[in-house]
C-alpha cells in the first residue's frame, strides 16, 4: 500500500471535484490498494454523504426515468441492509445474500458493489501483464489459468468476468443508475452503463471523471416480485459465481408471457439475454421449452482453455432458474 491523502467531504458538490477516488465500504478499494493494484494519491471517504434510503422512488436527482414507479436504493446503503429489506425484490435479495460473506456485506455498499473490480488473478497480481490494470501490457489470462473467466463479451485484450451478483439481478430487472458529477445529474439504464472490454479493457463503465453513483432504481415492482437468482459456484458461500442467472418470469395459463434474464460469471459484464427472453415468449413453461430457449444463450460464446464447461453450465443454470419460477418454488 502506498501513502495517500484522505478527506471526508460532507456534500456531494465537494465530493465530485474529479480529483478523488471514492471510498465507501472499502471492501474493493482497500483490498486492491493493499495489493498495489490501485495506488490513488487522493481518497475521499464518502460515507457522510446523504446517499441512503430504501423506498418508493421520488425522482432522486433526475426527472426522467421511472420516478414514482420504482424502488429507489441509495448508493451508500449496505448490502446486508438491502438484502433484508422487505420491499427489495427476491432476485436482488438473493443475489446480495449469496454474495461475499456477512462481514463483507455489512460493510460493502450498493454503489461500490456495482463498481467493484474483477477478481481475475492476473489483474490482482502486479507482477503479471494485464491490459485492464496496465493498458497495452497484455492479457495473462488468455494463456494462463482461465477456468473462472468469461465466455461472453470477451476480446483479445481481456476475458475477465464482472464479479457482481447484484449487478446481474439489477440488469435483469431493467434497473437504472443515477449519477451526479460536476456537470449535474443524469440517469442511465444499468445495462448500458457497463462496457465490454474491446480494446480498452481499462474502461469498465460509462462513469465520467469525478462522477458519483447516487441511487439505483428498480422499476416495475410487480414484475420484479416474481424473480429469482441462482448462483452456481465451487463452494456454498464466500465465493464468486462460476455461473449465475437472474430472471423474472410471467407465466399465464402455462404459457410464458414475459421473461427478463441476465447471467453472471460468464460475461465480461452482467450479461442480459434478450435472445433467450424472445425465444421464451409464447412458449409453454416446460423444461423442454426452457432448454430449447437456453440454447440461444450461448450462441457466439468463445470458451478458453479451461472454461469450456461454462457453456453447458449456463444453459443448465438458466433451466434451473426458470423451473424455479415456473414451479413457484425455490429449491
Amino acid at each position: 500500500m502506498r501513502q495517500f491523502d484522505i478527506t471526508a467531504p460532507t456534500t456531494i458538490d465537494d465530493a465530485v471535484d474529479g480529483r478523488h477516488t471514492f471510498l465507501a465500504g472499502g471492501t474493493t478499494l482497500v483490498d486492491l490498494m493493499k495489493l498495489d493494484v490501485l495506488t490513488p494519491p487522493r481518497v475521499a471517504d464518502i460515507n457522510a454523504l446523504p446517499l441512503r434510503g430504501i423506498g418508493a422512488d421520488e425522482g432522486g436527482h433526475s426527472d426522467n426515468g421511472n420516478a414514482g414507479h420504482g424502488l429507489r436504493i441509495g448508493a451508500l446503503e449496505r448490502m446486508s441492509d438491502v438484502a433484508e429489506h422487505p420491499d427489495v425484490p427476491p432476485a436482488v435479495r438473493r443475489a446480495l445474500t449469496l454474495s461475499a460473506s456477512q462481514q463483507l456485506r455489512n460493510m460493502a455498499t450498493i454503489g461500490g458493489n456495482l463498481l467493484q473490480r474483477t477478481r481475475c488473478g492476473y489483474f490482482r497480481d502486479t507482477t503479471m501483464p494485464c491490459n485492464k490494470r496496465t493498458p497495452g501490457s497484455g492479457c495473462s489470462a488468455l494463456g494462463g489459468n482461465n477456468r473462472g473467466h468469461a465466455v461472453l463479451g470477451t476480446s483479445d485484450h481481456c476475458v475477465a468476468t464482472h464479479a457482481s451478483d447484484l449487478a446481474v439481478a439489477l440488469v435483469a430487472l431493467d434497473a437504472e443508475v443515477r449519477l451526479v458529477g460536476s456537470d449535474g445529474a443524469r440517469t442511465t439504464p444499468l445495462a448500458d452503463f457497463y462496457r465490454t472490454p474491446g480494446d480498452t479493457p481499462e474502461i469498465e463503465t460509462g462513469l465520467r471523471d469525478g462522477e458519483l453513483t447516487t441511487d439505483v432504481v428498480v422499476p416495475h415492482p410487480e414484475r420484479a416480485a416474481h424473480s429469482t437468482y441462482v448462483k452456481v459456484r465451487d463452494r456454498q458461500s464466500y465465493e464468486f459465481a462460476l455461473c449465475s442467472v437472474a430472471a423474472s418470469l410471467d407465466v399465464r395459463d402455462g404459457v410464458v408471457v414475459d421473461a427478463r434474464i441476465a447471467a453472471g460469471g460468464v460475461g465480461t459484464i452482467p450479461w442480459r439475454l434478450p435472445g433467450v427472453e424472445a425465444a421464451l415468449r409464447g412458449e409453454p413453461a416446460t423444461e423442454s421449452a426452457f432448454a430449447a430457449a437456453a440454447e440461444v444463450a450461448t450462441h457466439g460464446a468463445t470458451p478458453l482453455t479451461h472454461n469450456g464447461f461454462k457453456v453447458p453450465l449456463l444453459r443448465r443454470t438458466l433451466v434451473r432458474a426458470l423451473l424455479e419460477l415456473a414451479e413457484g418454488s425455490t429449491r
Binding site: 477478481r119 488473478g121 463452494r235
Partner: peptide, 18 residues
C-alpha cells in the same frame, strides 16, 4: 510456474455451509 491461487479467497477451503 507461477502459482495461480495464493490467497484464501482463491485457494478454496470449505466454509461452514459446505
Amino acid at each position: 510456474g507461477r502459482m495461480s491461487r495464493r490467497d484464501l479467497a482463491d485457494y478454496l477451503l470449505p466454509v461452514n455451509a459446505d
